[in-house]
């Protein structure tokens, strides 16, 4: 069997690029104080947003982000064929509870913090394969619900090590459509699971950098592109430490990405002022930075070709306690005007 869309080992070039019709992002109060605040559609004043628990606050963020992206696109919701969403909470409750009233066929996804690009990849294949005309993709995370599930109670007086990262409170959502004027998803490279043997759950950037490097270099090799093909390359949430490691790893394999590469977790917060240690993390990090910042840059034609690589750490609190290492994953999607 010949795969006509497949190039190289694991990359795919779409026969007809998939259009990104609209985006929406909602973030929390700490992100509001960050350097990207003017790019987000809405910034919340508090983490509860009028809800009783952080879990339902996160669901509300998902719900409102999806509603916002649908109303911005002008597409009636009955013409949206799929809703692809995921988050970090157990059994993806933030997405499924947030979207239970949307009346759109729902496919829940989990790829840890790589969920956003994962959903864009699945959405593109659905559209490219003529299964759908419009697909809405969404990913979210919430600092408080993530801390509660993965780390310690918020009021516990502990110190965060310098390598720890700050889970972004927020969600980003995009609508992918068959037709439109761009920006377009032109190619993607789904990643393999890469385990670098890192066991420190407070150093996610280092655990995921190996997967990011694998996907990045595979993407270049498969497509025959090189780093200068893109105006900008963004990873999801490697943070300051992971970003440095990825630059080193890529240069050791002969790819220099120093000049046009950045990390959404690094961009999200001001390291000096906001005391977020190694930077932002979580599904909502790349989701909101793409939906807010990167998409606007594309619209203003400041970037013409962008590679988004969402990175995820495929662990939970049980696996950490059992002394397992942290496998990483990274999915790349190439977006062009």
């Amino acid at each position: 069997m010949i795969f006509i869309k497949k190039v190289g080992n694991q990359s795919y070039i779409l026969s007809k690029p998939v259009n990104i019709t609209s985006t929406a992002s909602i973030v929390g109060p700490k992100e509001k104080e960050g350097p990207l605040h003017q790019f987000f559609d809405q910034c919340l004043e508090d983490e509860f947003w009028g809800e009783k628990s952080w879990e339902s606050a996160e669901s509300k963020i998902v719900k409102e982000t999806v509603n916002m992206v649908i109303s911005k696109s002008g597409i009636p919701s009955r013409e949206i064929d799929f809703c692809l969403a995921g988050d970090l909470l157990n059994q993806c409750i933030a997405s499924s509870f947030g979207l239970r009233e949307t009346n759109i066929p729902f496919i829940g996804l989990f790829g840890a913090c790589s969920t956003f690009v994962e959903s864009m990849i699945v959405g593109s294949t659905l559209i490219d394969g003529d299964f759908a005309n419009n697909v809405v993709c969404c990913a979210s995370s919430h600092f408080c619900s993530a801390e509660k599930q993965f780390r310690f109670p918020l009021e516990l007086g502990n110190q965060r090590p310098p390598s720890s990262q700050w889970t972004v409170t927020g969600a980003g959502s995009v609508i992918l459509s068959k037709d439109g004027n761009g920006p377009f998803i032109s190619a993607f490279t789904p990643g393999k699971i890469v385990d670098m043997g890192i066991k420190d759950a407070n150093n996610m950037g280092a655990a995921m950098a190996g997967a990011a490097e694998d996907t990045l270099i595979t993407h270049f090799k498969d497509t025959g592109r090189n780093p200068s093909y893109y105006d900008a390359i963004f990873t999801g949430d490697l943070g300051h430490i992971g970003k440095d490691i990825l630059v080193d790893l890529a240069s050791s394999k002969g790819y220099n990405i120093k000049s046009n590469y950045n990390d959404c977790g690094v961009l999200m917060f001001d390291k000096q002022k906001q005391d977020t240690h190694s930077g932002g993390s979580g599904c909502g990090c790349i989701a909101s930075v793409f939906s807010g910042y990167v998409y606007k840059m594309l619209q203003e034609k400041k970037y013409k070709k962008v590679l988004m690589i969402a990175t995820g750490a495929l662990m939970n609190s049980t696996s950490t306690q059992q002394g397992e290492s942290i496998p990483g994953i990274a999915h790349a999607v190439s977006i062009e005007l």
Binding site: P162, I198, A206, I245
Partner: peptide
């Protein structure tokens, strides 16, 4: 990789 990461991670 672990040795390299330890070096990269600030104390």
């Amino acid at each position: 990789y672990q040795t390299y990461v330890d070096q990269k991670t600030p104390n």
